[in-house]
Amino acid sequence: MKGSMKSLTGFKSILQNKKKLKRTPWKEVFIFLFPGFAGVCLFVLVPFGDVVRRSFSTAVTGEWSGLSNYKMILNNQAFLLAAKNTLRFMGICLPLLIAVSLFLAYELSKSRYMKLLKSLYLLPMAIPAAAVVLVWKLLFDRQGILNALWEPFLSEPVDYMGTNAAFWVLVISYIWKNLGYTVILWLAGIMGISEGIIDAAKVDGAGERTCFFRIILPNLKPTLYTITVLSFLNSFKVFREAYLVAGAYPHESMYLLQHLFNNWFLNLDMDKMAAAAVLTAGVMLVFILILQALWDRKDV
């Protein structure tokens, strides 16, 4: 039961199963794997090595400059603001998305309309960011639809894109886009719990609430891990909506790391970009490896 689901990075035990397999001859490995691996090297690994080198050199002359690029970005106001906003965004969005989607998935698992509702929830995933920009602009304009709807209740219209409310617009568009697939993942987790256990608990007099907190929730731990990782990764994509609605320099409450990278790129600030890319990659890698280690320890 408990180990029936493995997460994204908890692949250790999957790999162990394969140890029994006989060694595949190099010729076959080469034919199947080499074209892909060569491409990955050419397009990602080798140029990223170059970026690492650049992060330790001056932009113009290419001389070794030690950690000076790193010092520069860590003292850069825009970088600090963007990093703070990105962390704040994740700190608010992830718990919110996870809680809301768990509630919806749990109720959906008992609903007769599961299939229909699931499709509707998932729909935003298919809608390109560019196609809804128009709606976002209309909704959140100072004289837009939302303010028109609230008008009778508010004395002043809210300037959604020009104040701190901009941050919340970002949160809403992230939840809108990502609710569906998170619900799907929760649902898969909930459906994977054998009904026998729940029925047995009910026979023993456990109520709905006890069942949820004592049986369903503990069994969803692996799903929670997966959802956290995936939602974290997808949270970077919110830049699409943010950029299309508010441009390269939005209100400072929604100025994310992605905006900063983009603007540095346009200004050809290669040294800053290189250092920031290496730093971000390092933080991501540590995050991924920690989660993976936690996972493997619990699971094996």
Partner: peptide
């Protein structure tokens, strides 16, 4: 994320 691989 793309930001990380953008420069490379």
């Amino acid at each position: 994320p793309f930001s990380v691989t953008m420069l490379s």
